[in-house]
């Protein structure tokens, strides 16, 4: 198992009588994309601000890159949800300043800024004032700002906000290449399709508490209904274990009972059915998110225990 770059143990944060973060524990592993998910007001931003040492936790412990939060500001890149830039200053000037605040010397920060601006196709905008840039461009510059010091860990709060599909693809590509360079990313986003695409593991929180925690694949498998999608030329109607079937174009969604997918596939083969495609029906993360947050479902045994384990540690 990879080393943890971030270990959070039982952190709590209250604002007056309102509990923002309630006994939260989780780990982020080296080289992964970790999704921090939750509805608005769930406590994500408060949690992130505690990680960044902008807020202090009332109780609990955080170990970030082997030290206390705030001890390794130079090694962490942070893109806050509430973000902006000095509007009256020039793009390059702002980037160099933010780089210097991260401890990078001026010339190096400048070179790095130029290189990154080229990567997000803004190389010609370095000399322009920030206010002359479109919103989307400003978002990309903000993204560049959090990479200027070549951080090991990136904490990205809603990085896709305000971006068009082309730029979303660009940022996604950039994130993938950062991960391939060995960086770790903590991603907080509301676009569940993007989270599904990018994240290895997730933590879903609501009201400051952990609802789901663990590998995205495992969680999806745990939540998956016992159903399969089959495409076959001639599917018999009286297959054993099938309690419902629904045609979806060429594919038939079969809900099973008392039989596993593997066993059902063996049965199809035994019945000499010409199977063209066969897959376990997965449930979209979006549905899991909505169901969990609305309290329509309880976490399946596996995910619950993962979350419970995280809390118990």
């Amino acid at each position: 198992m990879a080393d943890s770059v971030l270990e959070v143990r039982n952190i709590c944060k209250k604002y007056g009588s309102r509990v923002a973060v309630d006994d939260l524990s989780f780990d982020v592993l080296q080289g992964e994309v970790f999704g921090l998910l939750g509805p608005n007001g769930a406590g994500k931003t408060s949690t992130i601000r505690i990680l960044m040492d902008i807020f202090k936790a009332d109780s609990g412990e955080v170990e970030l890159l082997g030290g206390l939060p705030g001890q390794s500001r130079e090694r962490v890149g942070y893109l806050p949800e509430e973000r902006g830039l000095y509007r009256d200053q020039r793009v390059l000037e702002v980037l160099v300043y933010l780089g210097r605040l991260k401890g990078v010397d001026g010339a190096k920060a400048r070179n790095r800024a130029l290189e990154l601006l080229a990567r997000v196709e803004l190389e010609e905008w370095g000399g322009k004032r920030v206010k002359e840039l479109s919103r989307g461009m400003q978002h990309k510059v903000q993204f560049v700002a959090c990479l200027i010091h070549d951080p090991e860990l990136l904490i990205l709060d809603e990085p896709f906000q305000g971006l068009d599909p082309v730029n979303v693809e660009m940022i996604k590509g950039l994130m993938r290449s950062l991960v391939s360079e060995g960086k770790t990313i903590v991603l907080s986003a509301h676009q569940m399709n993007l989270v599904e695409e990018l994240c290895d593991r997730i933590l879903l929180i609501d009201d400051g508490k952990a609802l789901l925690y663990g590998s995205l694949k495992e969680i999806k498998r745990d939540f998956a209904p016992n159903s399969v999608r089959v495409q076959a030329a001639d599917l018999p109607v009286d297959l054993p274990g099938v309690v419902a079937s629904e045609r979806q174009g060429d594919v038939t969604l079969l809900t099973l009972e008392g039989i596993g997918a593997q066993e059902f596939l063996a049965g199809l083969v035994a019945h000499d059915v010409q199977v063209e495609s066969f897959e376990r029906a997965a449930v979209p993360l979006n549905d899991i998110f909505v169901a969990m947050v609305q309290g329509n479902t309880t976490p399946p045994q596996g995910s619950l225990s993962t979350a419970e384990k995280a809390k118990a540690r």
Binding site: M52, D53, I54, G70, R73, E74, V76, Y78, L79, P80, E82, R83, G84, L85, Y86, R87, L98, L101, K102, Q142, A145, C146
Partner: peptide, 17 residues
């Protein structure tokens, strides 16, 4: 006030105390 209203403050506070 400008740093606050332009929302640059949180980026700055992630680098300095």
């Amino acid at each position: 006030a400008e740093e606050k209203s332009s929302r640059v403050i949180e980026i700055v506070l992630s680098s300095v105390t």
